Amino acid sequence: MSFVLSVLVVLHLLSWAVALGLWVAAAGTRQPNKAIAHASATALVIGIVMMGLSMATGGTGHLWFALKLLFAAIAAIFSVVAISRREETPSLVWFGIPTAIVLNVIVAVFRIGA
């Protein structure tokens, strides 16, 4: 089970890296790429799967899971909104995408709430 969780962690972090990289690539023109939403949603789904596996095997840290789930959901929802609004994307939504991604990774690395 440890190997499966490790592979999922790698895929989860790669999804966030892709989403953040695509956001940086589109930051100059504020023309979001649909792949930002796909990568954010992939990271959200993988995170939910990891959370379920961890809790099923006796993992604790429910606040940690809740914080990561919140930031992942914000990033995914803001990404979808940015795709639908294109150039008219509000600044809160546009800059909320990388902020939520970075906060999600910070919570994971420093185990805030664990």
Rank of each mutant, 00 (worst) to 15 (best):
A76R: 00
L22C: 06
N33F: 08
V10Q: 09
F95H: 14
I106N: 08
V4W: 09
F78H: 01
G58H: 10
V80D: 04
L67H: 04
A19I: 08
P98E: 10
I83V: 13
A114S: 13
G52A: 09
S15F: 12
W64F: 15
T57L: 12
G21F: 09
L53R: 01
A41P: 00
A41D: 10
V80F: 10
L103T: 08
T42K: 00
F78E: 05
G28S: 13
A19N: 11
F71I: 07
V7Q: 07
I97L: 10
Q31D: 13
G61F: 07
P90E: 09
R85I: 03
W64T: 00
G21H: 06
A114P: 00
L67S: 04
R30K: 14
M1W: 05
F78D: 11
I46L: 15
H12S: 03
E88C: 04
V49T: 12
S79K: 04
E87H: 09
F110N: 00
I112W: 13
F3V: 10
G28P: 12
L20T: 13
F78M: 02
T99W: 10
A37C: 08
T99L: 15
M55G: 02
T89P: 12
W64G: 15
M51H: 06
A75M: 05
S84H: 08
G21A: 04
L53G: 14
V80M: 06
W64R: 01
L92S: 14
V7I: 15
G58T: 06
V102M: 04
F65Q: 12
L44W: 07
L11R: 05
S84C: 02
A76I: 02
T89A: 10
S40K: 00
A76E: 01
V10D: 11
G59D: 09
E88F: 06
I36K: 11
T60Y: 05
L20Y: 02
G47R: 00
L22V: 01
G61Q: 08
I46E: 09
T42S: 14
V107P: 04
V4R: 02
L5T: 12
M51D: 04
V45A: 14
V107G: 02
T60K: 14
A56D: 11
E88A: 15
E87G: 10
G52L: 04
A26H: 03
L67Y: 13
A73H: 01
I74N: 01
G52S: 06
G52C: 06
P98M: 06
L5C: 01
L70W: 06
V9G: 06
E87I: 08
A75L: 05
A26S: 14
R111D: 01
F78W: 10
I77N: 05
G61A: 08
A37Y: 07
G21I: 03
H12V: 07
T60A: 15
L14Y: 02
L5G: 02
V107A: 12
L92P: 03
F71L: 12
A19F: 11
